[in-house]
Design a protein around this nucleic acid. Sequence first.
RNA 1: GGCCCGUUCGUCUAGGGGUUAGGACGCGUCCCUUUCACGGACGAAACACGGGUUCGAUUCCCGUACGGGCUACCA
Length: 513
Amino acid sequence: MEKRVRVRFAPSPTGGLHMGGVRTALFNYLFAKKHGGDFILRIEDTDQTRYVKGAEDYIIAALKWCGIEPNEGVGFGDGPYKPYRQSERKASGLYKNYADKLIAGGHAYYAFDTSEELDEMRKRLEAAKVAAPQYNSVSRQNMRNSLTLSEDEVKKLIESGTPYVIRLKVPRNEEIRFHDIIRGWVVVNSTQVDDKVLLKSDGMPTYHLAHIVDDIEMKISHAVRGEEWLPSAPAHILIYRYLGLESDMPLLAHLPLILKPDGNGKLSKRDKSGLPMFPLDWHDERTGESYVGYRESGFTADAFINMLALLGWNPGDTREIMPMSELIESFSFERVNKSGAKFDPEKTKWFNQQYLRKRSDAELAESFAPILESKGHKAGLPAGEAGKVFLTEFCRLIKEKAHFINEFYDLGSYFFVAPNSYDEKVISKKWNENSKALYTKLNEKFSAASEWSIDSVTKLFHEAETELGKLDMQLVRVLVTGVSGGPQLMDMLALLGKTEVTNRISAALTVLK
RNA sequence: GGCCCGUUCGUCUAGGGGUUAGGACGCGUCCCUUUCACGGACGAAACACGGGUUCGAUUCCCGUACGGGCUACCA
C-alpha cells in the first residue's frame, strides 16, 4: 500500500526566509496538494547560538502571504505530532533515545574531544596532506572517544560531567547507494562520509539526527530539500539503516538550487539585480540589517509564486502563467530539473506585469489608494465616491504601462499634481511663435465646453482642428502634464476634468513664450 | 585540494538516435497608435569540447573543460 503523502518544510529560524527557501516550501506544498496529502511546518531550532528573534514569525507570515499554508505545524494550529519545534521536542528525551539506540547497536559512540583537539587533528591531517581531513574511521583511532578509551574511563568521564558528543560510527570503505526521485541513483563510498555528530555537548541533536527522528515520528513520506543536502544524504541513509528503519525511510528529492542572475554562486541575501531576495521586508535585529521584500516592492504573491515555480520546474507544455491551482494540478518531481537555475529579474518583472493586467481596475485602485496617500496627495482627490471613480479610471489608464503597482505614482503623478516644468525636447522642437495664440484659442474652446467626457473632448478637439488648423497632440499633452508620454490623450483630458485642464493650459501659456 | 551533482539560444526551458532543434523573458525590425506603452508580425540567438557506440549522434557511453554544492558540536 502506498504511504499517505506527508511532506514537511523544516527551516531553522536563523534569519528571514529567502526566496530559495520559499521555493522549497512551495514544491513541498504543491506535491502535498497534488496528492491530497499533508504539508507540515517544522521549526528546526537546534542551534541556539544562531537563533534569531523574529525569524519564526517571519517564516509563518511569509508562507501565509505566499499562500503556501501548512495544514499542520508551528503557527498553523499544530497537529497530531506536536510539538513541531525541535527545541520543544527535545524535552521528552526523544533524540537522546534514538542516539542511545545507535550506541547500543554499536553504530555510534561518545567523543570527548575539545574543539582545540579537533582543530589540532585537522591541522595534523592537513600537514600530512590528507585529501579530506575529517573525523572518520581512521582519525577516530587517535582521538578521545569511547572506541579508544576503556569502558571505565568513559564511565568516569561521563559521570564527572565531562562534555561529550555522540558521533555516528561510519564504516570504512562501504558503498552507500540511495535513490533520489529527481537525480536517480547516487553512489558514495563511506570513506567520504565523516563520523557526524548526532548529539551535541549541550544535549541538542544536530540536524542529521533530529530531522531523521522527526521524519520517522511524523510519518513523513518524502523528504524534499535543497541540493546542498545531497552530500550528507549517505550519512542519513546509514542512520536509518542502523536504526532498522530503512524501510520506513522517506523517499528523497533534492531540488536544484537557485543561482545568482549574474556570475556564479547560489543566490545570496543581497543581490545587485535590484529585486528583493525575500518575500516580505525583513529586518534582522541581531545584525541591524534590513532587506526589502517582494510584497513591499509591489509584487503580488501569485506572480512571485508563479515565477518561483517555473524556476527549475515546468508543466511539460508551454504554459507559463499558472495560478496556484494549476501549479498543483500539474506538479510532479519528474519534471523538476537537475541543474541549478539562474534567477532572472527581467522575467520576474514580466510575471508581475502579467498578473497586474489581470487585476480589475477597482481592485488596483484599492491597492493604490494607500500608496497615493503616502505620497501626500490625498487632498487633491475628489472626496468619497468620486475619488474612487477617479482612482479606478486612473488605474485603467496607467496599468498598461507598469510592471508594479508601485510604479503607478511615478508614471502618472501629473494626475494628482500640476506640472511645474515642461519637457524641453518637445517644447524646443514644436513650440513656435504661433503656438501661444493657437493654444490660447484651443483653451478658450475647452473652457466653453458644456460637456466633458472622452467622446466630447475628442469631438471638440477635432472641431478645433478644422477651425484653427492642425494641432499637435503631444504639445497639448506637455502643456497639461509636463511630460511627453502617457495614456491616451483624450482619456487623460477627460479624467482630469475641464477645470483642471484649462487651468493647466493657462498656466503653461504664461510660462512659455 | 577531495567528494558529489550538473551542462540545449544571454537567461528560464521543451525535445530526444534521423527535427527547418520548439516556446518564454530580454534584444532588434516592422505594423497598430497624431505620444509612450499594450497588442500583432517578423528576426538575430543554443545542443561545452574530444573520443567512442552506431548506417546515423545534440540525444547513449567514457574522458576533458566549465559551473554548482559539500567538506563544523550550522542548518
